[in-house]
Design a protein around this nucleic acid. Structure first.
Ligand SMILES: [Mn+2]
Ligand SMILES: [Mn+2]
Ligand SMILES: [Zn+2]
Ligand SMILES: [Zn+2]
Lengths: 141, 141
DNA sequence: AGTTAAGATAATAAGCACTCTCAATAAGCC
DNA sequence: GGCTTATTGAGAGTGCTTATTATCTTAACT
């Protein structure tokens, strides 16, 4: 039940928040801009304002329900936080996004930060390139 | 001579381009927004338009003279490309930026990309946190 | 050095992603 | 159900960046 998730996150359970959360949980696309979330909701006949989508996504980020990325181009992209940190490979040709996690990289980062007396909050590793998948150029995620 | 660097990069040597390039080479700050470049030039009495600064920085990026970063917040930040790739630690408290390079991380990235059939163009690793430096809260770079 | 054509600049307008304002609405609590 | 207060939606506003265009520079050629 999504209303429980919202309550646990310290947010009042409202229709627009439920809609956005449900969409992020059920959408094919894992990584979406605010505009994409808005359009997807409109297509489902859910009447939510664009300002509300931006507001709600920002609240979700503050509450830890979603993660925000600033990919190349500077656009904010959101994805549901499912508890498992991961990094990203981004195909600049077809727009597809692949996720990965590498323990060696993660631990090297911690070592570097420690050596420099730096307390890590967060990090992101974006690898840009071209995927060799058969359906490159056609898909998007 | 900066005019040679511009010619080598396939760009006509003009006064505004020279000014921007010189500034990036001589500035204390390695990582600057377009606005910061613009203001710094104004302070030196160099009369360059803001639109020109944006245009020139974008041309420099295309020519490989500078690198553009999209740090948290979505602002574009530029730095001179001095041939040595590096990644970044960013203090969210004082704004200071530290650079590092780690061969282990670099080679793991190549392995991950290869395993996924991905041809890397570029990558960026940003570690956000708080630096323990005595002058945290006061400096900026 | 002066001429000329191609290319670059400056100022301003426009575009775009995002945020703010505020009256209307909906949640949560008696 | 009514009350109190947080949330919403529409549109205006903001801030960063790009496009337009008339003017000016640069670089190559007399
Ligand atoms: Mn992801
Ligand atoms: Mn750097
Ligand atoms: Zn692809
Ligand atoms: Zn600091």
């Amino acid at each position: 039940m999504e209303s429980q998730d919202l309550k646990k996150a310290g947010l009042k359970s409202t229709l627009p928040r439920m809609r956005v959360l449900q969409l992020l949980e059920n959408s094919e696309k894992r990584h979406m801009t605010a505009e994409e979330v808005y359009k997807a909701l409109m297509e489902c006949g859910e009447d939510v304002g664009l300002a509300t989508v931006y507001r709600v996504l920002t609240q979700f980020e503050a509450a830890g329900l979603v993660n925000r990325h600033y990919f190349e181009g500077g656009l904010s992209v959101f994805e549901l936080n499912q508890g498992h940190h991961h990094d990203h490979l981004l195909c600049v040709k077809c727009g597809k996004i692949f996720e990965f996690i590498d323990d060696t990289i993660e631990s090297r980062q911690r070592q570097i930060a420690e050596k420099m007396g730096f307390a890590i909050n967060d990090h992101c590793l974006y690898i840009y390139g071209v995927c060799q998948k058969q359906n490159c150029e056609h898909n998007q995620d």
